[in-house]
């Protein structure tokens, strides 16, 4: 399995990367850690003619506690998240979820910005950022814009990012309020069959692999906000979702898992 041929350029800065994107258009792809893109290229499911390597933009590798939130450079690797003292204090959920992605070798290379931009509904970190109510900072030719995580994902492997934009920073609110993450899979290294993120005592509840995008479990959130018990709220976990059917689980079983795991997550998060 070998990628089709392409041209390659190292981006010297975010501005440079964006200029290159503008120059090469739809046929170009940003390469960060490469752990989503390269496998797709090996199967020739992705055949960009220009690969722009942003993996060397070390100025986008940082985790900083700022005013009420943690700012994370888009090129920050999962391994850095899972070992971050800043996150341990300010956002332990993100630190924990990072430690569940793929396997250690994957976490050494994969980046937070890359996984968010990839917009895989089965990925852990997008769901975590979603539950946390994070904000994504995108830079384009005309400057930067902030995108709320729950407005970012638009479809299967699709986001609101324009072809000439790149993520530069991810912000998650500081807070250690009741949180939990449930990842249900058959092998440790695999994507979640269903995953559930609970943040801030149940104010944010997200679902992994329950549709074509990472989802907020809005029915659960609203029920909790309206005073429902965790058990009653969890029963609504699959409301409004269209979960996929694959070799591991059909839609119906995914619905059951979502309800079961939401209850577990809420309970573990101290929501009763």
């Amino acid at each position: 399995m070998i990628p089709a041929a392409f041209d390659y350029q190292v981006a010297e800065s975010a501005d440079h990367a964006i200029a290159l994107l503008g120059e090469h258009g739809d046929e170009s792809k940003l390469l960060a850690g490469g752990h989503s893109l390269v496998p797709m290229m090996k199967f020739r499911l992705a055949t960009p003619t220009m690969v722009i390597d942003v993996g060397r933009l070390d100025d986008l590798r940082y985790i900083r506690a700022e005013n009420g939130h943690v700012a994370i450079g888009a090129l920050t690797r999962h391994h850095e998240l899972e070992n971050s003292d800043v996150l341990a204090d300010a956002c332990p959920m993100l630190k924990h979820v990072a430690s569940l992605v793929g396997d250690p070798s994957v976490r050494h290379r994969g980046t937070l910005g890359g996984t968010l931009a990839h917009s895989d509904p089965a990925s852990d970190l997008p769901a975590a950022v979603l539950a946390l109510g994070g904000t994504l900072v995108a830079q384009g030719p005309s400057g930067t814009r902030e995108i709320a995580a729950n407005e970012f994902f638009t479809g299967y492997f699709e986001s609101v990012l324009a072809p000439d934009e790149m993520l530069t920073e991810i912000r998650v609110p500081s807070g250690t309020g009741g949180w939990n993450y449930q990842k249900f899979n058959r092998r440790a290294q695999d994507w979640a069959i269903v995953g559930v993120g609970v943040a801030d005592g149940g104010k944010g509840v997200s679902l992994v692999n329950m549709g074509s995008v990472p989802l907020r479990a809005t029915a659960v959130e609203e029920a909790l906000a309206g005073g429902a018990s965790a058990a009653d709220a969890a029963a609504l976990a699959a409301e409004g979702t269209e979960p996929p059917t694959d070799l591991n689980a059909d839609a119906d079983y995914r619905g059951h898992l979502a309800r079961t795991l939401v209850l577990r997550a809420l309970t573990e998060a101290g929501v009763s």
């Binding site: 058959r186 092998r187 440790a188 290294q189 695999d190 070799l247």
Partner: peptide, 10 residues
């Protein structure tokens, strides 16, 4: 990826 040969973790 889809044919689940177990790892040490399982």
């Amino acid at each position: 990826m889809d044919y689940l040969v177990p790892s040490a973790a399982e």
